[in-house]
Simulated assay, not measured.
Amino acid sequence: MPEPARQDRHVRHLDARSLRGLAHPLRMQLLDSLRFSGPATASQLAERLGESSGATSYHLRQLAAHGFVEDDPERGKGRERWWRAADDGLYFDDALFTDASPAVRGAVDMVMHQVATKHTQELYTWLGNRHTWPQEWVPGTDMSDMTLRLTPRLANELIEKMHALVESYRDLPEAVDAPDAERVRIHTHTFPISTD
């Protein structure tokens, strides 16, 4: 399912309440599945994720209560309920990382660890399957690490520039109808390390 054009993209800013509604491993998996694989029913998601349809139904309703998913009115017949992601991405407000509430900080930690786990799984999947991709993709992949000495301000500036660069590639006409164009995942991780 192609991602929406940049002007149609909606990135949701997480606040303390919505973050607590998302902070569950299965909810995050459900949301990722709907965002990356498109609309589905609770039963389809249960099969896809190896869960019971009761569990997926419950957590989909919780996600809907917090505005992360919504009914897809273009699909479904009778009692069949289709769900779709309400947003194209999520954005953490920096204040969440220093919130006074232990519950909020715990939710931040849980969500961030789930994101890191998802990134690791995606990378392992690529490494295990890269031999099945055409040879032309070899120079189009990267697994690099670099170490710089930066201030917090410079690190933030670097992150903003990296994100802007990635966004500038989102809707290039060259890739829209190209037969060899594929969806590409880009992970960026920027964090300080101890020099001890």
Rank of each mutant, 00 (worst) to 15 (best):
D72S: 15
D109G: 07
V111T: 09
M143W: 03
N129P: 00
T190C: 07
S101F: 02
D72E: 15
W126T: 12
H10M: 13
L63R: 03
F191Q: 04
S57E: 02
S144L: 06
V69E: 13
K161G: 03
L30P: 14
F68G: 09
T125W: 01
P39W: 09
D177L: 02
L123C: 02
G67Y: 05
D32Q: 11
H119M: 13
Q44T: 15
V104F: 00
D177E: 06
A175Q: 01
P192R: 12
P4G: 10
R153I: 01
F36K: 11
E122Q: 13
A65L: 04
T117Y: 04
R9M: 03
S33H: 13
W82Q: 08
G50S: 04
S18P: 01
S168P: 10
P179I: 04
A107W: 00
Y169S: 06
N129F: 01
M162W: 11
W126D: 08
V138M: 01
R61E: 07
A64S: 11
S33Y: 08
L154T: 13
V11S: 09
H119V: 13
F92T: 00
A5M: 07
D94G: 06
L22R: 05
V111D: 01
D94N: 10
G89I: 04
T117E: 12
W137E: 10
A116L: 14
V111L: 01
L90D: 03
V115Q: 06
L30S: 14
R149V: 14
P73K: 05
S18K: 02
F191T: 11
T117F: 07
A164Q: 12
T151K: 03
A23N: 02
Q7F: 02
G140T: 10
A178D: 14
Q44Y: 03
H66M: 07
D71G: 11
E3S: 09
